[in-house]
Design a protein around this nucleic acid. Structure first.
Length: 476
DNA sequence: GCGATCAGAT
DNA sequence: CACATCTGATCGC
């Protein structure tokens, strides 16, 4: 639905040139009382995006003044607009458009979306600096002389590879190792920055702080020469510990670029600690009933290592992972992890497998080569959110799915949509954690970095921000 | 034939 | 519903 709407929106605007521009090239909106339903919806989207831009954006003037010519390109980027002849000339933030070739009979809307996605969204650029954050999939970004990477997840490093040549990359030392190892980026571009240390880059004081997300993930604190402070959270899970970071206690943050993944009260989940205790409890129970159980933890690239580390610690068993994953895990340089990895699957009952393997059929096949070493499988799929509203904070309501001797916590079942729940081990902030963090920091402005492409969710988030910042006391 | 990129699936 | 890929198709060379 949303996507279809977006397509139409982009397509419609590009084709019908329904937008008016003011003398600066900014879209201008006229109150239009025509009662055409479809048009109205489009108008709403445009208006709230514009509202967001002017009302809750930072003082964008610094961006506009330092790079006057970027104004229009910027704005076009925001709206996902490329208007014919104009766009080529003003397209300062994106590589030249690719020529379209409608090889099949498909609508050009698909092609338009491709182009639109090629330009760097405004919220990835840090105003008043030549910096971008997590913006590698837009080619060479005009005016950008330092590319920051918050953490090593695909949706943030996408575009980085051995052919990267658009400028220096700044990130944490752990992330730097992964970028070099896994993506084969030329090391001369990679600039590791120690956490909790002030680095001066292009005259801006930059400090990386632990983000409580995946290994190597960092919050980035920028202090400009004019005294403005910006905090970019990348992806993070807000924690009480952060309220003691000296930089956050001692300096006012003017603009907060916020990971708003779960910025909605419907997202409730337990603390990491509670989930780890739960997983350990379930595992112990299972092993008590069936000592010959293989315990499997699903994982993507990096993140959620604590789930298998907790089991390893509690049971005193080693962790098996295949060679490529071991290489990545070793690169973290965490003694408690490196020291507990093993290279043979039959050396331990605790295995880490790709998330895609956590299916009944695949696990059954996986078990075969181990003969009668194992009589059952217990698998955990740590997901961000519990999926079921009824579960929320109550871990005891989680029900696994079983087939034969295989039990999966977090197997998605359409049939049991309302009672199923994964293991809600989240590396993003819950709604209440976000609120507490924002009310601690009390920034002048907040720029959400997730769920921004939908007008309704943007509007909703902004109203939460207003609410949080308008009241003096913490609410519970 | 190959890597890069894309839409769609999971 | 959303995360963080993964898969399979297509593109460009």
């Amino acid at each position: 639905m949303t996507d279809a709407g977006l397509y139409e929106f982009e397509y419609g605007d590009c084709e019908s040139s329904g937008l008016l521009h003011d003398e600066n090239g900014f879209p201008s909106f006229q109150d239009n009382d025509d009662d055409d339903d479809d048009d109205e919806e489009e108008e709403e989207k445009e208006e709230s995006f514009a509202d967001d831009f002017y009302r809750c954006g930072t003082d964008w003037s610094c961006l506009l003044q330092t790079e006057r010519k970027l104004k229009q390109a910027n704005l076009f980027d925001m709206w996902g607009l490329k208007s014919n002849s104009e766009s080529e000339a003003n397209c300062l933030f994106s590589p030249p458009m690719k020529k379209l070739k409608a090889s099949n009979g498909k609508s050009t809307a698909t092609h338009l979306k491709k182009i639109v996605d090629r330009s760097c969204p405004f919220y990835k650029k840090i105003p008043g600096t030549p910096f971008t954050v997590d913006a590698f999939r837009y080619g060479s970004i005009k005016g950008c002389s330092a590319y920051f990477l918050t953490h090593f997840h695909y949706d943030h490093y996408g575009g980085l590879g051995k052919r990267w040549s658009h400028g220096p990359i700044y990130c944490s030392p752990l992330t730097a190792r992964l970028v070099r190892m896994c993506l084969l980026v030329n090391p001369s571009y990679i600039h590791p920055l120690e956490l909790n240390t002030e680095h001066v880059i292009d005259g801006v004081k930059v400090t990386l702080l632990e983000a409580n997300h995946c290994p190597g993930a960092a919050l980035i604190h920028f202090r400009l020469q004019d005294g403005q402070c910006y905090l970019h959270t990348g992806d993070f899970r807000a924690s009480r510990l952060m309220q003691s970071y000296p930089l956050l206690v001692n300096h006012r943050v003017n603009v907060l670029y916020l990971d708003t993944t779960y910025c909605n009260p419907k997202y409730k989940f337990p603390s990491k600690e509670d989930v780890l205790n739960y997983v350990v409890r379930v595992t112990k129970n299972c092993l008590k009933k069936q000592p010959k159980t293989l315990v499997v933890v699903g994982a993507y690239s990096i993140g959620k290592e604590s789930v298998f580390l907790a089991i390893s610690k509690a049971l005193g068993v080693k962790i098996y992972a295949n060679a490529s994953r071991r290489r990545v895990l070793q690169s973290f340089d965490w003694p408690e992890l490196s020291g507990n990895l093993c290279t043979q699957g039959n050396d331990t009952l605790l295995h880490v497998l790709p998330m895609s393997s956590l299916k009944f059929e695949t696990l059954k096949d996986y078990l075969k080569p181990y003969g009668n070493q194992y009589a059952a499988v217990l698998a955990f799929r740590p997901t961000g959110w519990t999926y079921s509203e009824t579960v929320g904070n109550q871990l005891d309501l989680i029900r696994p799915l079983s087939r034969g001797n295989i039990t999966i916590y977090g197997k998605i079942s359409k049939a049991r949509i309302n009672i199923f729940s994964g293991v809600p081990y989240s590396e993003h902030s819950s709604f209440t954690e976000l609120r507490e963090f924002v009310q601690f920091l009390r920034p002048d402005k907040i720029i959400p970095t997730v769920n921004v492409w939908n007008a309704a969710s943007r509007e909703k988030m902004q109203s939460f921000f207003r609410e949080w910042l308008s009241c003096k006391k913490l609410m519970i």
